[in-house]
Amino acid sequence: MTGMWETVPRLLGDSRYLVLATADRQGRPWATPVFFAARDEDRLFWVSAPDSRHSRNLAERPDVAITVFDSHAPVGGAEALYLEATAGPADDPVAALAALNARLPAGKELTGDDLAPSGPMVAYSADVRRHFVLIRGGDSRFDNVTDARLHVTRPRQGAQPRYARRAAR
């Protein structure tokens, strides 16, 4: 099976929002949509208020799950990415703002004044450890009746990618 990795950069480039799943110290989950920009397939950026629930959760538990998908896709036509990552304040807020501003409409760009300590937001980044793509139930390429997720890795030069299927949740 070839070509599954290509879903990753395409959906990251086409999508404007991700769903960020965090948990607090006691393990209580929280999910929130955020506008994002991808530097590449392994680093994502967004800005949030440091006192928002997901930002407070990140301060306690940096492990996150991320889902990227087109919410306007017709039923049965969805594509999605499931990402496992570690997140926190961006090491390079200038790079985060540059990536985000490249996706924002004219007049809506962010500046350093929007970021703490003088501004209300913090630039965050997620370092992606594992990438999964949605395999819809009944996909003729796979023996699956229900939706599943497929672990994909970036193909190495001249190598065929390996896949491991898991049930979607």
Rank of each mutant, 00 (worst) to 15 (best):
P155S: 00
D113N: 12
S48P: 08
A96Y: 12
D147W: 06
E41M: 02
F142P: 03
L44N: 05
A164H: 11
D143Q: 14
G76L: 10
R16D: 15
T86E: 13
W46P: 05
A59Y: 09
S118M: 10
L18P: 04
G138Q: 08
A85Y: 06
G13N: 09
I66G: 10
R28W: 15
M121F: 15
G3R: 07
T111P: 00
N144Q: 06
L104F: 05
R129C: 08
D91M: 04
P74K: 10
F69Y: 13
A73Q: 09
G76I: 00
R169P: 15
A98P: 08
T32S: 13
L11I: 03
A59P: 08
F69A: 00
L97K: 01
G119F: 10
M1C: 12
D113L: 08
N57T: 01
A164Q: 14
R39G: 06
R166E: 15
D91C: 04
R103P: 01
R39V: 05
R10T: 05
W30Y: 15
L83D: 01
S118F: 03
Q160W: 13
D143K: 11
L150I: 02
L20T: 00
A21G: 07
A126I: 09
P89E: 14
A96N: 08
E41W: 08
A98T: 13
R28D: 10
P62Q: 09
D139S: 12
L104T: 02
V133W: 04
R165N: 06
R16G: 02
V94L: 12
R162Q: 13
H151V: 13
A65T: 10
T22S: 10
V64Q: 14
T153A: 05
L134T: 06
A148D: 07
S15R: 14
P155K: 01
D143F: 11
E109L: 07
A85L: 06
V75H: 15
A164N: 06
Q160H: 14
P120V: 04
R162H: 15
N101Y: 12
H72C: 03
S71N: 14
F142V: 01
R16A: 02
Q26N: 09
L58S: 00
D70H: 03
P93Q: 00
T2P: 11
L150G: 04
D147A: 06
R28T: 13
V68R: 02
G137P: 02
R136V: 01
A78E: 14
S55C: 00
A106L: 08
T67R: 13
S118C: 00
S118T: 14
E109T: 07
F142H: 12
T22L: 07
T22D: 13
A87I: 01
A38I: 06
E79T: 10
Y82K: 02
A38V: 09
T32E: 13
L100D: 07
F35E: 04
H131D: 01
T111D: 03
R53N: 03
I66P: 06
P120G: 02
R156E: 14
R136Y: 04
V145Y: 07
A126F: 14
Y124N: 00
